[in-house]
Computed example of a mutant assay.
Amino acid sequence: MQELELWTLDELCDHAFDIFEELAAESLSAQDYALYQQHYETRGYADLTLPGEDWVDIMMQDLDPELHFEAQIGLTGEAGEADMVLARILLSREKYESLCHAQWRGQ
């Protein structure tokens, strides 16, 4: 059996951010994209979490908590406001796994 080649969590976060950057202009509303462009340097973030149950329903398959992560990318809130999650991206840590599914704010 061949051993899986895995992204580190930092690499996976960078990979998710690259996907976000590539697709954000066409996937976000013009207003959300402009807001992101204006504030990403000071308020932008990307966090990795375990995928929620909604991903199991969407993907119609079980997800391995050791291999699958949800990247949440957005802007931190100001003056006590909640963070604005612009995209949730489901990814595998396996480098050659093609699993990638995104949910965008407003869709």
Rank of each mutant, 00 (worst) to 15 (best):
I73Q: 00
F20L: 04
Y40Q: 06
E66Y: 05
L99W: 00
T76L: 10
L75H: 00
A102D: 10
A24G: 08
D64Y: 02
G106M: 10
I19N: 05
M59R: 15
E21M: 11
Y45A: 04
D10S: 05
Y36V: 01
C100A: 12
S27V: 04
D54A: 09
L91S: 03
E53S: 08
Y96G: 12
Q38F: 00
R43K: 10
R43W: 10
L23E: 13
W7T: 02
Y96T: 14
Y40I: 02
G44F: 05
D14Q: 04
L99E: 00
Q61F: 15
D47H: 08
F69D: 00
G77F: 08
G44E: 11
Y45V: 05
E81P: 07
L75D: 00
M59A: 15
D83A: 02
S98C: 08
H68E: 06
A34Q: 14
D10W: 03
L99A: 00
L28F: 11
D54R: 09
C100E: 01
L91C: 06
W7N: 02
E70I: 04
Y45R: 09
I19A: 07
I89F: 07
R105V: 05
A87E: 04
V85G: 02
E26T: 14
A79G: 07
D62H: 12
H101F: 13
Y96S: 09
A79C: 11
T42A: 13
E5M: 14
M59W: 13
L86G: 00
E94S: 06
W7A: 00
D57T: 15
I58F: 15
L67T: 00
T76Q: 08
V56T: 15
M84I: 10
L9Q: 13
A71H: 01
G80Q: 12
L4D: 06
A82W: 08
L23N: 12
D54V: 12
V56H: 15
G106Y: 07
V56D: 14
W55K: 09
M84E: 05
P51T: 05
Y36I: 01
K95M: 13
L9A: 06
P51A: 06
E78S: 08
Q61G: 13
D64G: 03
G52C: 05
P51M: 04
A16H: 03
I89D: 01
Y45T: 10
L86A: 04
L91V: 10
D64H: 09
R43D: 02
H39P: 07
Q72N: 03
Q38H: 10
Q72D: 01
H68V: 06
A82I: 04
Y36W: 14
L48Y: 04
H39L: 09
S98T: 13
E11V: 01
E97G: 01
Q2R: 15
Y33C: 12
L23V: 12
G52W: 07
F20P: 05
E5G: 07
T49Q: 03
E81C: 02
S29H: 11
Y96E: 11
R43I: 00
T49N: 03
D32F: 12
Q61E: 14
G52L: 04
A87L: 10
D62A: 12
L63I: 11
